[in-house]
Write a protein that binds this DNA or RNA. Structure first.
Length: 804
RNA sequence: GGGCGCAUAGCUCAGCGGGAGAGCGCUCGCUUCACACGCGAGAGGUCCCUGGUUCGAUCCCAGGUGCGCCCACCA
C-alpha cells in the first residue's frame, strides 16, 4: 500500500467491478425480506450532472448502501426524463443555428432528429452518477419515452378521462412566444425588470373629461373592453356605468366596478384586457365582457391595422398617437417582476387558448389525507406543511403543450366532432362509428409522465412481480422547487392508480449556493461542475464534503469540506497501513484483552448507534461528524497510538482485535466513502465478500460498559501536555496507555503549570458557585448537579497534584 | 406581496436552557519506524441589537436590523 492514497484509479476500478459483479443490482446481498426502494429523480436527458445532483446522489447512495449492508432487498432505480420543452428547446436552438427551424423540417423529422441527437449525445448523467460511486441498478435504466412507459402514460390519461377528471377549456394561459406553447404556472420564472409605467387618458364618451389609467403595456389597449375601478373609490363614484373611449381604436367601453382593482396602485383605474392579462380575463368573465385579441401566438401583433408589427413597433405607433392628442399624461420608470419562460427566458405572453386541463379539486384529496396522517412525511417539517398547502390550493393543472417532443395526447376527434380517448389507439369513433379519426396534436406536460415514475418503471400498467415487490418504495430525495411539480403529483397519481402512496419519506435537500452566496447558475457563471472536485479529491471526498454541508436550508459550496473528506480518506488509508503491516498472518477476531481494545470496541459501537440515528433522521451532516471524530480522535489518536507498541511486540490479541476493529470502522464509513473502504477491506484477511454487501456491524452489549475506560487517561494526558505534571493513574493498564500515547520521553518543552493551575482555579470557582446556589441545586436535574460535583472533585484533585 | 429560513472564531459552519465548539487559515514546537494531506501545543468570540420568561439564556418568547431561498395575476 502506498503512503499517499490516490483516489482516482481506485475509485474507477471499484465502480467497474461492483457493477460488473452485479452488486448494484436490485436485491444484491439480500439477507432479509424487507425491501428498500428509492427512485432517482429522473434527470433531463439533455443535462449534465450539477452540484444539486451530486448532493442528491450522495444522500441517496448513503441510504441505499446502508440498507443494502443491513440485508434489505434494495433497489435504486435509475433513468431519464424526456423533459419535453427543455429538450425541444435544445434541439430547436440547434436548428436555428443551422439556419432552419422546426416548422421548416416538420414534426416527424423534428422528432426523429431529437431521438437521433439524444442517442448520440444525450443521456450522459448516468455515467456521471457512476463516477460518483452511486450504486444505482444501471441494468434497469428507464426513459420516460420508452415504449412501455408510453403505454403507462397513455393509460393514466385514459383513466383520468374515463373518470371525468380531464376537460378542455379556452382560458388564458402562460404562453411562451418562442416555443409557441402553453406552460404551467410552475414553469414561469419571475424576473425583476425595468419597465415604463404609462398614464393614459381615456376620455368619457359623452364628453367632460375622462379617466386616466396606468399600464406598462400600451399595445394591449387595442383589445381593451372596459376600464375598472374599485367600487368604494370615491374618486370614481360617478364614473361607474359611464362609457370611455379607448384610444387609437376609438372603441366605447363601459367603466365597471370590481373589488379586485387596487385603488392604491397608479391612478386607481385600470384598463381591462381579457385577452392579454390573467386578472383582466377573470374580471371580463365576471362582468360578461367579450375577449378581444391584439397579439398572436408568436408575440407579434394581429390586430387589424397592426398586423405583423412587433410589440415595440406597435408601442411606438400608439404612443405617437397618444402624444399627438395629449392623452399620454406621464411616463415613469417602473421596476417590477415579469414572467419569463424558465427554459428560454422569453417574456411570457398571457394568451387565451384551448387547452386540456386536469381538475385538481378532489383528485388531490387522498394525497392531502395521506400527508395529514403522516403516511408520507416531508423532511424538514416546514416542507411538510408546504406540501399540504400546495395540494390544498392546487389550481387545475394545464396538461397540454403545443410542442412536438413528448407524449402526444390520446384524444381523437371524428368528423362529427365526437371525442374519444383510448389506448391502444381506437379504430373508430365510439359514438358514431366513424373510422376517420384525427388525433389531438398537442403533447402532455413532462410532469404528467414523471408523476408515474415510481411504478411505471416497475412495469405498470401490467401487474408485474416487481411492481408487487418494490411498490410502494421508501424514500424520495429532491430539491425544494420540485415539491409541487413532482413530489405531490407522484403522491396523488400513486394513490389514484395504485391506491397506495409511492414512498413514506420525502427528503428535501438543501440548496447549494456558490461560495459567494449567490445562486449556482450557468448564466451567472457561478456554477461548479461536481466532476472537478471528484477528479481533484476523489468521489469519496466529494460525497463526504457534500453530506457534511447538507444540514441547513441554504448552504454555500465549500471546497474545504471536500478537502476534509480527502484528509479523512488519507488518514483511514494510513492507519490501515499501520494495522495491516503489523498483522501479517493474523485473523480478525474480537479479543479485547487490553484497555485500549475494550475502549475502541465500545467507541465503535457507540459511533455505530450515533450514525444509525443520524441516517434514520436523515441528518447527514451529523453522520459525517460522528465518522470524522471516530476515525481521527478515537481510532487514530487514541486507539492506534495506544496499541502500537503491542502490535510491534506481536501481541496476538492486539493483532486479531486490531483487524476486527478496523473492519468495523470500514463498514461504518462505507455508506459515505465506499471506494477507499472497499479498497482497504480487500486487503483484510478472510474477507472474500465485498464490503458493499457485507453485514452492517452488530452491536455487542458487553462493550457498552467500557466506553468511559479511557476517561482518566485522557484527562491525565491533557494535564500533562499543558503543565508537564503527571496526574496519578490507578492501574498498570492506564499507565501503559498513558506512556504509549503521550510518550513523555519525547516531550521537550516544559509545560506551563501556572497557567494550568489558573485554569483549574477558575473552573473550581465556577463549579463551587453553582453548587452553592440553592435554586440551582433545587431546580436542576439531579444528573446535572451530580456531574457538576464530580467535575469539582476532579479539578480539586488535579490542582492538588499541581502542588496546591 | 406571501411562505420558509439564517445571523456563533479571519473563512465555512455545528451546538440550541447549566463549562463557547469543529474544519480550514494563523502562531509556536516536532523529518517520533501509518500518515508533514502528519503529530503536539496555542492565539483568536459583547454567540446581530433591544426587551421579556427563568435561579440561570448563545439556546425559549416578542420586537428590531441585516441577509438568503422558494412562491406570487398589483396593471
Amino acid at each position: 500500500m502506498e503512503a499517499l492514497y490516490d483516489p482516482s484509479g481506485v475509485e474507477r476500478r471499484w465502480q467497474e467491478r461492483w457493477e460488473a459483479e452485479g452488486l448494484y443490482a436490485a436485491g444484491a446481498g439480500r439477507r432479509r425480506d424487507e425491501t428498500f426502494v428509492i427512485c432517482v429523480p429522473p434527470p433531463n436527458v439533455t443535462g449534465d450532472l450539477h452540484m444539486g445532483h451530486a448532493l442528491n446522489g450522495a444522500i441517496q447512495d448513503a441510504l441505499v448502501r446502508w440498507h443494502r449492508m443491513q440485508g434489505y432487498d434494495t433497489l435504486w432505480q435509475p433513468g431519464y426524463d424526456h423533459a419535453g420543452i427543455s429538450t425541444q428547446n435544445v434541439v430547436e436552438k440547434q436548428l436555428v443555428a443551422e439556419g432552419t427551424s422546426r416548422r421548416e423540417i416538420g414534426r416527424e423529422a423534428f422528432v426523429a432528429r431529437t431521438w437521433d441527437w439524444l442517442e448520440k449525445t444525450g443521456m450522459t448523467i448516468m455515467g456521471q452518477y457512476r463516477r460518483l460511486g452511486a450504486s444505482l441498478d444501471y441494468s434497469r435504466e428507464r426513459f420516460t419515452m420508452d415504449d412501455d412507459y408510453v403505454r403507462a402514460v397513455m393509460t393514466f390519461f385514459v383513466r383520468l378521462w374515463e373518470q371525468g377528471w380531464i376537460y378542455r377549456a379556452n382560458r388564458i394561459v402562460n404562453w411562451c412566444p418562442f416555443h409557441e406553447t402553453a406552460i404551467s404556472d410552475l414553469e414561469v420564472e419571475h424576473v425583476e425588470m425595468d419597465d415604463t409605467l404609462y398614464r393614459i387618458l381615456y376620455p368619457f364618451a359623452d364628453g367632460g373629461g375622462g379617466l386616466t389609467i396606468a399600464t406598462v403595456r400600451p399595445p394591449t389597449l387595442l383589445a381593451d373592453v372596459a376600464v375598472a375601478v374599485h367600487p368604494d373609490d370615491p374618486r370614481y363614484a360617478g364614473a361607474v356605468g359611464r362609457e370611455v373611449v379607448v384610444p387609437v381604436v376609438e372603441r366605447r367601453v363601459p367603466v365597471v366596478a370590481d373589488a379586485r382593482v387596487d385603488p392604491e396602485f397608479g391612478t386607481g383605474a385600470v384598463k381591462i384586457t381579457p385577452g392579454h392579462d390573467p386578472l383582466d380575463f377573470e374580471i371580463g368573465r365576471d362582468h360578461g365582457l367579450e375577449t378581444l385579441t391584439a397579439i398572436g401566438p408568436d408575440g407579434r401583433m394581429v390586430f387589424p391595422g397592426f398586423e405583423g408589427l412587433s410589440q415595440e413597433e406597435a408601442n411606438e405607433r400608439i404612443l405617437a398617437w397618444l402624444t399627438e392628442r395629449g392623452q399620454l399624461e406621464r411616463r415613469d420608470p417602473y421596476r417590477h417582476a415579469v414572467g419569463t419562460c424558465e427554459r428560454c427566458h422569453t417574456r411570457i405572453e398571457p394568451l387565451v387558448s384551448p387547452q386540456w386541463w386536469c381538475r385538481m379539486e378532489g383528485l388531490g384529496a387522498p394525497a392531502i389525507e395521506a400527508l395529514r396522517e403522516r403516511r408520507v412525511r416531508f423532511h424538514p417539517e416546514s416542507q411538510h406543511r408546504f406540501a399540504i398547502e400546495s395540494l390544498e390550493n392546487a389550481p387545475d393543472w394545464c396538461i397540454s403543450r403545443q410542442l412536438w417532443w413528448g407524449h402526444q395526447i390520446p384524444v381523437w376527434t371524428c368528423r362529427d366532432g365526437h371525442q374519444v380517448s383510448a389506448w391502444p389507439p381506437p379504430e373508430s369513433c365510439s359514438e358514431c362509428g366513424a373510422s376517420e379519426l384525427e388525433r389531438d396534436p398537442d403533447v402532455l406536460d413532462t410532469w404528467f409522465s414523471s408523476a408515474l415514475w415510481p411504478f411505471a418503471t416497475l412495469g405498470w400498467p401490467d401487474e408485474t412481480d416487481e411492481l408487487a415487490r418494490y411498490y410502494p418504495g421508501d424514500v424520495s430525495v429532491t430539491a425544494r422547487e420540485i415539491i409541487r411539480l413532482w413530489e405531490n403529483r407522484m403522491i396523488f397519481s400513486g394513490l389514484f392508480l395504485r391506491g397506495d402512496i409511492p414512498f413514506t419519506d420525502v427528503i428535501i435537500t438543501s440548496t447549494i449556493l456558490a461560495a459567494d452566496g449567490r445562486r449556482m447558475s450557468k448564466s451567472l457563471g457561478t456554477g461548479v461542475d461536481p466532476m472537478e472536485p471528484i477528479e481533484a479529491h476523489g468521489a469519496d471526498a466529494t460525497r463526504y464534503g457534500l453530506l457534511k454541508i447538507s444540514s441547513t436550508q441554504d448552504v454555500r459550496y465549500a471546497i474545504g469540506a471536500i478537502e476534509e473528506g480527502r484528509k479523512l480518506a488519507n488518514k483511514l488509508w494510513n492507519v490501515s497501513r499501520l494495522i495491516l503491516q503489523q498483522t501479517a498472518g493474523a485473523e480478525p477476531a474480537e479479543r479485547p484483552s487490553a484497555l485500549e481494545e475494550r475502549w475502541i470496541l465500545a467507541r465503535l459501537d457507540a459511533a455505530r448507534a450515533a450514525v444509525e440515528d443520524a441516517w434514520s433522521r436523515f441528518d447527514f451532516a451529523a453522520a459525517t461528524n460522528v465518522l470524522y471524530h471516530l476515525t481521527f480522535d478515537d481510532f487514530c489518536d487514541w486507539y492506534a497510538e495506544a496499541v502500537k507498541p503491542r502490535l510491534y511486540d506481536g501481541d496476538e490479541d492486539a493483532r486479531a482485535t486490531g483487524l476486527a476493529a478496523l473492519a468495523r470502522l470500514l463498514a461504518l464509513l462505507h455508506p459515505v466513502m465506499p471506494h477507499v473502504t472497499e479498497e482497504i477491506w480487500s486487503y483484510l484477511p478472510a474477507r472474500e465478500e465485498r464490503l458493499v454487501v457485507a453485514p452492517w456491524p452488530e452491536p455487542d452489549a458487553a462493550y457498552a460498559e467500557w466506553e468511559g475506560a479511557l476517561e482518566r487517561v485522557q484527562e491525565a494526558a491533557r494535564v500533562f501536555r499543558r503543565s508537564g505534571v503527571r496526574v496519578e493513574l490507578g492501574g498498570e493498564e492506564e499507565r501503559r496507555v498513558f506512556e504509549a500515547v503521550v510518550r513523555p520521553e519525547r516531550r521537550q518543552a516544559a509545560g506551563d503549570a501556572d497557567a494550568e493551575r489558573e485554569r483549574l482555579r477558575k473552573e473550581i470557582a465556577r463549579a463551587e458557585g453553582m453548587l452553592a446556589n440553592e435554586r440551582f441545586v433545587g431546580n436542576a436535574p439531579a444528573d446535572v448537579v451530580e456531574a457538576e460535583r464530580a467535575k469539582l472533585e476532579r479539578y480539586r484533585g488535579e490542582l492538588a497534584l499541581l502542588g496546591e
